[in-house]
Design a protein around this nucleic acid. Structure first.
Lengths: 327, 327
DNA sequence: ATGAAAGCGCTAACAT
DNA sequence: ATGTTAGCGCTTTCAT
């Protein structure tokens, strides 16, 4: 900027005025300054600007489990739209379900002085973010609550969704229903399992523990779990899957087996309706969750709500065929 | 930092030393400073640090068409891993194929002084990035070339892939093959169409223009295009689809029709192998493309290659069934 | 081992 | 309409 001022033969502040479109510069001077700017390829350094202004940085951090997971990539895109509508930029990071990694990313974002953070928190304690919250960084938790910190939160109604999915299978006459979920320390996994148990209990249907398999959705683990559930002398006749990754992995394993149990998946996924047996799902609305979280964040930045908000997003059962297979 | 120094009864520089783990502070003093830091919840302001150091900001911008598109979300994740390995942060933005939006995002990233930019460029001229390149911002183009600027570029071998897919259909005996591609101003769409034409020409197979439909993959447009190609007195017997979005949309339209033409899709996609008729595809490797682009960027930041690099990533035909249907 | 002073690029506040 | 000065929070340089 100094160079531009020198080359244009004006003061520093005049260049600043031109760059920021402030009034008080004659059109002649402004034109000259603009010409020099183009010629020198000058770009304002927003870091310096922000440092001086001490205000908002116009940036937001988004931390989730994995941007490549369709659920999170849709959520991510929705967040991005809202962030853009507020003329902010978005920093993104995948925690890969590793709390140390999440923490490093979160603190890195905060060191860059993001205005706010939208987080899909791991199950670890998040008290480390208390100083950031105290310093005015807006914090929003999405998909899961944030352990150890009271913040704005957007959750799906996991329990009700799992109840609805399981009850749907029970209505078809199934009594022996297996449950394949994610690692049990993940909030959503635990909630959905609880929903399954609740629906079974409500139906007076005892659950045998071998019917339940909780863990990261890896093919080998699922193969063993399915073998256990389906090859038993008293096999399960239906399966409830805890999330889109698990559902897809289970479908792949089932393709290599003879049995065709009924199946309901938590989370909708692309092509679910075009499979040989279209897949019945309990659909979430990741875009709505992302949009809601981002809007909550900007509302908080405007200083609007007093107490932390908790928003529950409903799920929706979509019958497509796989959940309507009789025992 | 000033507050910490005052509260700890030390000089500013001592706090700085502690925060940055520099030598020259007695363990007693360091401990005292750390205690104050924790108590006050102090976090270093990286913006100020960077301003003073004048060096790298440790951040990279990624601009693509749509983070929610599985192709780009996988690419995105791969970029993220490399960026993380270099202790950098990632800014992400979706251009939505809108060059003005892309430009605004790119310049916004540059104003934040990202060290480099990885871009899936729209077809508009990118000369506006020349000053950034001149200022030392590393620029990498991925998936498409960057019009109007010579930069490191990572492309798939679109033409060869489309030739391979089309030739595969020709080998099955098809002569009347339709092509459904994305908007023709998109580089990859044009290249793949050219590959299709080339394969047809090589086989001495005349192409009738009604067999070709180029445009954003919207259901209605595709419905008309398919009706034209399939209901003709001389219908096409096979279809080549230009990308994953088009393939999925076409599959959905075909589900509502009687005809079952052979089909080869460009881009692999999840569950392609589990559909009623498993889908034969020309697979790209989005993760490899993203990783390569990011590594190229950091290599350039180390000042390594002299001239802009051009890397071509191979595609791979995966026969699964839909492409092996006879005429 | 520790600190004081200058300055990174910019803008706010106040001149002129 | 234009310019000058101080200072944002930090690090560099140079003293002590």
């Amino acid at each position: 900027m100094k160079d531009v001022a020198a080359a244009a033969g004006v003061g520093l502040k005049t260049v600043s005025r031109v760059v920021n479109g402030e009034a008080g510069v004659s059109e002649a001077t402004a034109g000259r300054v603009r010409a020099v700017i183009d010629q020198l390829g000058f770009r304002r350094n927003d870091g310096a600007r922000l440092l001086r202004q001490g205000a908002r940085t116009g940036s937001v951090g988004l931390l989730l489990e994995d941007v490549a997971d369709p659920f999170y990539s849709q959520l991510s895109r929705a967040v991005e739209e809202v962030v853009r509508a507020h003329d902010s930029l978005l920093l993104t990071g995948s925690s890969a379900e590793d709390s140390a990694r999440e923490r490093a990313l979160a603190l890195g974002f905060c060191a860059r002085r993001v205005d706010g953070l939208i987080v899909v928190p791991t199950s670890a304690d998040h008290a480390y973010l208390a100083p950031e919250a105290a310093a005015g960084t807006a914090l929003v938790s999405v998909d899961r609550p944030m352990p150890g910190l009271e913040v704005d939160t957007v959750l799906a109604d996991n329990r009700a969704g799992a109840v609805a999915g399981t009850a749907h299978l029970l209505r078809q006459g199934h009594r022996r229903i297996g449950y394949l979920g994610d690692a049990p320390d993940i909030f959503t996994a635990a909630e959905r399992l609880a929903g399954y148990r609740q629906a079974m209990a409500d139906a007076g249907c005892p659950v045998e523990e071998p019917w339940i398999a909780m863990g990261r959705p890896d093919p080998l683990g699922l193969r063993f779990a399915l073998a256990r559930m389906l090859s038993d002398p008293h096999p399960v006749t239906a399966l409830m899957c805890g999330n889109n990754r698990t559902t897809v992995a289970v479908l792949r394993e089932l393709a290599g087996r003879q049995e065709r149990p009924a199946l309901v998946g938590f989370d909708d996924f692309e092509l679910a309706d075009l499979l040989a047996v279209p897949v019945t799902v309990v659909a979430q609305d990741p875009a709505l969750m992302g949009r809601t979280a981002a809007e909550l964040l900007f509302r908080r930045l405007r200083g609007e709500p007093a107490a932390p908000q908790h928003i529950l997003v409903r799920t929706r059962l979509i019958p497509r065929g796989s959940g309507e297979i009789p025992p």
